[in-house]
Design a binder for these strands. Structure first.
Lengths: 243, 243
DNA sequence: CAATTTTCATTTGTCTGACATTTAATGGTT
DNA sequence: AACCATTAAATGTCAGACAAATGAAAATTG
């Protein structure tokens, strides 16, 4: 692990990259302890501050964790899917809000990816995942639910569907698409009639998955996508008119 | 923007979170200049080092950029899809290598997601994207290509397919799935016969997209997935036997 | 001897102050 | 008006100090 004396980049960037490369290449295996900050400062021939800033960069990406004390130090993190979810969701949300992605485009992406999971989920869904979908659908039918709570339950329903595909890679990739839509969905106010329609579609989706009927499930998800898009259109149109 | 004096978390973590919240909520809009490091240190009542470590954390997530000089400072970044790709790919690659994800699982996820794009790509693919797919397929048919170059061209082919769906959100989400597979694919040595078979399937995929035939394209991608999985199986089996 | 307490060394976290470097604006000179 | 030197402001880097946490070793105690 060395840094290029010719480079004009900030030291902390170079050091972080150097350590990152060592982690990616496997030179530094999971749970390996890095040299102490002072030792790293000596090795790279820089000050401890620069090393610390580099380590903070890596920590922000969950590549390392630090512990204080005698046997403490910086350790290579075992990057787990659960931990990566949050970053994935935050980034996806920011991307949507900063790039003027239309509701339609985001919605299309979300349902397209979700529909891809359906054939697998129809085969593999567990009773437990089905129960979650039923429970969330029931919750959505309760009167007095706020729009936010309704949307949160909606996300939980669809995550259960995605998890039904029993593929952690899929679940991870979909987390961003599904959850990043929530802030957009939260902007919609759902009438009782809207909710009843969605609950109906959710029920049919669960039914289809229960009977391992991928084709029907796919069709209903397609319906749900179109219904959601129309709903958003009418809500946004109304809001524009009121203003 | 304040931090909790009761919290036991590191100062740089709290400060970073506080600024991050302000960015996500829109309180700090894109291209807004943050207060200088010294001003932030005063505001949060901490030292400049702690502020700097917090800013490095944010920079590592591309949430801010910094500029030196008189009119410099830290600015809220416009998070673009192109920039987010790399992080997405790095994270996906590390997740695959650290979580003992089987080749089969990763392959399934990748092709499942890619097949989801097919109906859209069959409708919307541009002549340009089709040309890219043809060109990469041609490159793959050249003798003397290293396995790495063959895989890289393979990735380029499939990215063109995904981009054909003309949905930036989809392209972003798929980047992780498609490119993170490359290191795994690179472990495979392709015989001339394997390559010919893949080139054949790629040609058929391009043909199907050219004639807007989503169904055929989907079937061939399914074939490609199974062929890839079998190929990997036989290669890994042989390697195990040799050892 | 065993259990407990104390001491101690190590490491990260935080603070202070200094200087280097970069950059744009300012003002003076030609 | 064009050019150049100065200057102020900001980040980047360094050095040194102390605080706080933590586990291990040493000392104490029953």
């Amino acid at each position: 692990m060395k840094i290029d004396p010719e480079s004009t980049a900030d030291l902390s960037v170079q050091i972080a990259q150097s350590i990152k490369d060592a982690i990616i290449s496997g030179e530094l295996p999971v749970d390996e302890r890095l040299p102490s900050e002072s030792e790293l400062a000596d090795q790279f021939d820089v000050s401890r501050s620069s090393v610390r800033e580099a380590l903070k960069r890596l920590a922000a990406q969950s590549l390392i964790r630090t512990q204080r004390g005698a046997t403490g130090g910086a350790f290579v993190n075992h990057l787990k899917f659960e931990n990566a979810y949050h970053q994935q969701i935050t980034t996806s949300s920011l991307l949507l809000s900063m790039n003027e992605v239309s509701f339609e485009t985001a919605c299309e992406a979300r349902f397209t990816l979700e529909r891809a999971c359906v054939p697998l989920a129809a085969q593999r869904r567990t009773a437990d995942q089905l129960a979650t979908m039923r429970a969330e659908t029931f919750r959505q039918s309760q009167p007095g639910l706020t729009d936010e709570a309704f949307c949160a339950s909606d996300v939980a329903f669809h995550r259960a569907l995605v998890d039904g595909a029993d593929n952690p890679v899929l679940s991870y990739q979909l987390a961003g698409a599904v959850e990043a839509m929530q802030p957009l969905m939260n902007m919609i106010t759902f009438s009782a009639r809207d909710r009843a329609k969605i609950v109906d579609l959710h029920t049919k989706i669960a039914d289809a998955l229960e009977s391992h009927d991928a084709e029907t499930c796919d069709q209903i998800l397609n319906d749900l996508m179109h219904y959601t898009t129309e709903l958003a259109h009418s809500v946004f149109a109304k809001r524009k008119k009121d203003k």
